[in-house]
Write a protein that binds this DNA or RNA. Structure first.
Lengths: 345, 345
DNA sequence: TTGTAGGCGTTATCAA
DNA sequence: TTGATAACGCCTACAA
């Protein structure tokens, strides 16, 4: 029943040629007779022969492949980025390995494995916290770029590149806008303080904006995501918002550090009989499609996805081919004012 | 600079033992002295040695790994399923390879490659159209299950399994509900007729429900997704709905064959100054989180994700271990009535 | 233009 | 309990 797995030797025998000829035929080598090549390809097709990639990877050391490691599979924000990166990478005639990293996995460990297995030439890390020691990062003997990954300690390090927005600044921009619209009691839904990355930075921007607007930050207005639920989900935003609504000090505006959280919050608000933005203004962060399509559309910070994606790949290839130094690039994000926020007196 | 890639031989030499001993230490083989094992592991850690998976895959023939091939990366619907399947597979002590298949790739070809490369024991196909010839499917010498994949021609074939909902029936259920609510002019947003799968079946259910309710299907109410935009996206639903609103024959209800399309449609309706559901009722299909969190929540057909995911894995392992025959299982989906539809006179 | 043989890094077999 | 050594399937000098 289980047909013997067919190898290059089998094909060679069936064609009456040597294995190298078969190999040459498959890999478009120049020095091979067009006729024999045809014949070999014929047999290959006929027997549905498929070369074993493990064997190939093992032998071939000039494979031009780069990997994207995505942390947090369910983030719609990354989908678009990946698509763009993919086409950029294809343009450079490299092939792409897309790999998802579980929330509880160590992306560097995964990368280390992949480097050996696939003989990677470069790596792009997407998402996650990335609080790795310098020592650990140095194990990565392959050029890599952190894309859309905030890092608390920006090493001056030029051992790798990064492309992202300035989370503190952009977060500040949004909250400052809320302040300017007259809001004094602005609640925020943030990540747990275990979050050393994006979550922390966005919270920091929130705090700074309040202070600069003469508003004393009030800890009772800072709400942490429910750690029993998946982080950065609508469900989580919904749960936390219900908690906020039950408090004695219901705010006039809520700033959730992701659009998904914001949309969840909206549901809770509307369910309570309140209106958006009449009773409570809501703002998010990221600029995902859903923020735009939601009704009312969510006021948010839109990250320049396309630019970030393209620049990420561009930098990686600069380092790869031109041996240019690594660099850290920051893009400006855009404050998108939707119908979910309003001016109050 | 580029440190020599370190192999099992290097480790063996450094430990003063043979390669097989190192191998045994790494793979938790029983017959090895606990002491030497410790020593070996020590060195491995110290030098950050990581075995090459390609070499492993090549040699090892008892690897217990199954793969999930997901078609259409951006479908939030699959994310949950994958999570559940993953934990189910872990419970069985198998490891998982998750692989995304591009819309224009052939999933069976990808599977064929992966089978050889990773020595797969089983495969789960998620999403996509899956209109493959019987002959092609027979090349897959490994048990596989189609999950949430509608197939137009249900082969009586027991050469593979499938788990899904009855798209015709469920679609019928929804449209029948709309009819019972008094709607006579029900537009639908469907897939192009190239879509031989889910799209076609759902459209068929729509047609049957209308007929059974004494409504003559009207081709001018059947709208096809914009093929210049990504299919099954909010953006696409938005574009098509705008087209519908411009028509002479604006319907009282719109049934989009996915929730994402439905939400996009909602935006267009609201932008035109109309109200949901007062002016137009909207319904979708799938039951994604967003349909629930949207305001008003979208009337939809909720697929029993968890059951489907668990059953998919269960069946695969039944075939794998107990050598049971393949089977085709259909789950009942649930009509979820949201605030996006109303009764009319 | 073609075939033979050696090696990629691992695991498995078989003696020791 | 260990260590040589032969595969695993492929690519690629090198020789023919």
């Amino acid at each position: 029943m289980n047909m013997e797995t067919i190898t290059i030797k089998d094909i060679a025998r069936m064609c009456g040629v040597g294995v190298s000829t078969v190999s040459r035929a498959m890999n478009n080598h120049p020095d091979i007779n067009e006729e024999t090549k045809m014949k070999v390809m014929e047999i290959i097709k006929q027997y549905h022969y498929i070369p074993n990639n493990s064997a190939r990877n093992l032998k071939r050391l000039d494979a031009k492949v780069i990997a994207i490691l995505v942390k947090g599979i369910s983030n719609p924000f990354f989908m678009k980025m990946i698509k763009i990166m993919e086409s950029e990478i294809q343009k450079k005639k490299y092939s792409l390995v897309l790999h998802h990293v579980e929330m509880n996995e160590d992306e560097v460990d995964v990368a280390l494995e992949l480097i050996k297995e696939k003989r990677l030439r470069g790596i792009i890390f997407l998402g996650g916290y990335f609080t790795h020691t310098k020592e650990k990062l140095q194990q990565l003997q392959v050029p890599f770029v952190l894309s859309t990954i905030a890092m608390t300690q920006k090493y001056q390090d030029t051992s790798y590149s990064s492309v992202s927005v300035d989370d503190i600044k952009e977060s500040y921009k949004l909250v400052d806008y809320l302040c300017k619209m007259g809001h004094k009691r602005i609640a925020t839904i943030v990540a747990s303080n275990l979050d050393e990355s994006v979550g922390k930075l966005r919270q920091e921007g929130y705090r700074m904006a309040l202070e600069d607007n003469g508003i004393e930050p009030d800890d009772s207005l800072i709400y942490v995501m429910n750690h029993e639920l998946d982080p950065y989900t609508m469900e989580n935003g919904y749960a936390v918002m219900n908690q906020i609504l039950k408090s004695e000090n219901v705010p006039t505006a809520v700033y959730a550090i992701s659009d998904t959280l914001a949309i969840g919050a909206c549901k809770a608000i509307l369910e309570s009989g309140r209106k958006i933005p009449e009773d409570i203004s809501v703002a998010g962060f990221d600029g995902i499609d859903m923020a735009y399509f939601y009704s009312p559309s969510i006021t948010t910070i839109r990250q320049p996805i396309e630019e970030i994606a393209k620049e990420t790949v561009a930098i990686l290839f600069d380092v790869l081919r031109k041996k240019v130094d690594h660099q850290h690039k920051t893009f400006e994000a855009e404050l998108v004012i939707g119908g979910s926020t309003r001016k109050i007196d």
